[in-house]
Design a protein around this nucleic acid. Structure first.
Lengths: 231, 231
DNA sequence: GTTTGCCGTAAAGATGATGTTAAGAAGTGA
DNA sequence: TCACTTCTTAACATCATCTTTACGGCAAAC
């Protein structure tokens, strides 16, 4: 599986496709070329490109039509590359959902820069970082804790404490380490505060705090959280 | 609700500013003009435009420097309008975070189309441009907020604040992040203003502001809005 | 069986953060 | 200019949270 950014080039002139795809590959993009509009629409779906470079003048269906069909279901950035310089054509293309419009001839450096700009615009759909075990779910991006689908309200310190344990689930964290991490090194010795906060957390997420399912006490050492089921 | 889309025009040639701002106002945008780079940076924070049109040739500080300073804290779409046609200048500007680059002379229709395209980019979070949850509906394109079908009047700042939360619904936005996004980095520390505005918003959209349904407080952190039912 | 040390729980005061209101400043349009 | 809305600041009341204190239970050690 390659992690290269994928670009779909829809263009019927083989001289141009060769030139552009060589340039793109030299910049570490993965390129696929479509020589017709229909092929372009089809590849937009199957190839799942991160950017589409689209020529307006195509042999079978019009570039506008390609734009329309792709935009019907996808928001992938589309950069129009065209020899047509008429303003009305630019306006039409942009309002149909194109993200940029470059007129031939253009420099490769500019094309590369505009591709980078388009990529910035497309929000990378990174899946959220989540801890999951039994009925408990912690979404770190949303700062959300759920138990059997119900939102659980935690205070600031409680949340810090729980996420610290969750991020090290399966491992024992010593009292000293936890105290240092959350209260800093200038806190008075002793872990009364830690015990109180742990009791509050357990009251919120454990059915029976006396027999915890998620956070276990290692007497004399520290706490350990049930291992994350994700990986 | 008459919350026009705001555009900041940074350009020192008065002939051009007059021409462009007339055109923009004819298209129902609200325009503010900065004749120098410093003024542009300052207005970017205080005026909170939805789009910035930036000329590269300015009397005091360079257009690139304006770009850099605004990008240090804001993601507002920036369209470069320049007489410089050199490819390297385009590349520099785009890589500094500009969203588009138009060379003079250009047609107003194209400028309008590129502004519309930029505005599309600044709303990437909501798939169909509508937030909906319970009885609340926010139409980002119409800039309309409805509660049980009734139009709700919000001030500029209230609208910005609510849409910021709606675009990130389900996740916590910190006070600092909200302050930076809406009031810019030059605002005095503290979030009194934020609290007052939130109280005003709640008075308008919540049945009982003391027990909010839509916008929740994460004490010590920030605010979180009820997750969008779309998606 | 008793003692000792460790842990969990409850309650209460102190602390700090938030919600609310009102008044003045600044901006807007007629 | 005036009337009007909106923005900002300040003061205050309220509430949640944090921390400390006190106490009971439990298990291991003597």
């Amino acid at each position: 599986m390659s992690t290269k950014i994928k670009i779909l080039l829809v263009e019927d002139d083989r001289n141009i496709t060769n030139f552009i795809s060589t340039t793109l590959e030299g910049n570490d993009y993965k390129v696929t070329t479509a020589l017709t509009g229909r092929e372009g629409v089809s590849l937009a779906a199957s190839f799942c490109p991160d950017v589409i470079l689209l020529d307006l003048g195509l042999p079978d269906i019009d570039g506008y039509e390609v734009l329309r069909q792709v935009r019907a279901w996808s928001r992938v950035p589309i950069i129009i590359i065209s020899a047509r310089t008429k303003e009305s054509e630019k306006v039409t293309a942009l309002d149909l959902g194109a993200d940029d419009y470059i007129t031939k001839p253009f420099g490769t450096a500019e094309l590369m820069a505009r591709i980078r700009t388009s990529l910035r615009h497309s929000r990378p759909a990174t899946p959220d970082h989540i801890y999951r075990a039994l009925n408990l779910e912690i979404n770190f991006e949303k700062r959300q804790v759920r138990l059997s689908g119900e939102d659980i309200h935690l205070t600031q310190i409680e949340y810090q404490l729980l996420t610290l344990l969750a991020e090290n689930s399966g491992r024992v964290l010593t009292y000293g380490h936890i105290m240092n991490t959350i209260w800093g090194p200038y806190m008075d010795a002793g872990n009364q505060i830690l015990r109180v906060n742990m009791a509050n957390i357990r009251r919120k997420i454990e059915k029976n705090p006396a027999q915890p399912q998620y956070v276990f006490t290692e007497i004399g050492i520290g706490y350990r959280m049930l291992e994350n089921e994700n990986v």
